[in-house]
């Protein structure tokens, strides 16, 4: 396990447990992500990967533990048994610092590409329109969509939509980015263009948590891989260790099945 030299991690997840009714989907999950670190989360379907990301972004409530962004506890205030949900305004402010990319893109269908990227900076942060537009154009050029500014999302391929979604999240100038299976809804030939953009972000030093089944990508790009099963973090470490020398039987089975081409 890598030790973190930085005393305040970008994200600290501390003994987080979450139940859906009686079903415990996160079971005392603890991990930390250092600034500039790219962490890939893998694990079988239903192991709680999505839920973990949604908890970090407060789209989901959790019942136990604490999550801190840059040392600031999110979602709940009060300590020692007392858990008070923070007011919506504060939750929204914290979310604005985190970029999130969904499996299903979730672009706003009634806005063109440029507007999709501009809307949050203008309406939430109050960035002047001209300035926001310049930033948006720049970001869209960086993800290779400089020629699609006026297109409506429905007219784009899945890969293009997902790149717009990444640009939309980046436009808020987030401190870190969360990706939930960003390529799982894409046709195989479109996966590469999205992974390319993500790889570029890692190289630029963006702090990232990426849930994905793209093992090749994880191996090449991730600083650290986290393996989850049944709501727990079973194993984590540098990709070469995890893929080359898996310790737990669960991870061995998972990787074996994966190599044999099972759908996960």
């Amino acid at each position: 396990m890598s030790t973190k030299p930085n005393p305040t991690p970008a994200i600290a997840v501390d003994g987080v447990s979450k139940w859906f009714g009686k079903l415990k989907v996160l079971d005392e999950v603890s991990t930390a992500v250092a600034p500039g670190e790219a962490v890939v989360v893998i694990g079988p379907s239903g192991s709680g990967k999505t839920t973990l990301l949604r908890c970090i972004n407060l789209l989901e409530e959790f019942q136990e533990g604490e999550i801190r962004i840059d040392g600031e506890p999110i979602g709940y205030s009060g300590s020692g048994g007392q858990r008070i949900r923070r007011p919506e305004r504060e939750v929204a402010r914290m979310r604005a610092q985190l970029g999130m990319v969904f499996q299903s893109f979730n672009l706003f269908p009634h806005m063109n590409v440029l507007k999709n990227v501009m809307v949050a900076p203008v309406r939430i942060k109050g960035v002047p329109r001209k300035e926001a537009e310049a930033i948006a154009v720049d970001l869209l050029e960086r993800v290779g969509l400089g020629d699609k500014l006026a297109s409506m999302p429905a007219k784009l391929s899945g890969g293009q939509q997902q790149r717009v979604a990444i640009a939309r999240a980046l436009a808020m100038n987030p401190e870190l980015m969360l990706f939930d299976e960003p390529t799982s809804a894409l046709d195989p030939e479109l996966v590469g263009e999205v992974l390319g953009v993500m790889r570029q972000l890692v190289e630029e030093g963006m702090t990232m948590v990426i849930v994905t089944h793209e093992m090749q990508f994880a191996r090449e790009v991730a600083h650290r891989v986290v393996f989850m099963a049944e709501g727990k973090i079973v194993e984590q470490g540098p990709p070469d260790d995890l893929f080359g020398n898996p310790q737990s039987e669960r991870l061995q089975t998972f990787l074996k099945r994966f190599r044999e081409g099972y759908m996960i």
Binding site: L59, A92, R95, M100, S104, N106, F108, V119, I124, A169
Partner: peptide
Amino acid sequence: RQVEAGMALGMQGRQVFSI
């Protein structure tokens, strides 16, 4: 999903509704 996409960008309830 649309609502959550708005919230993830930092919108509050009212903003999600109007935007």
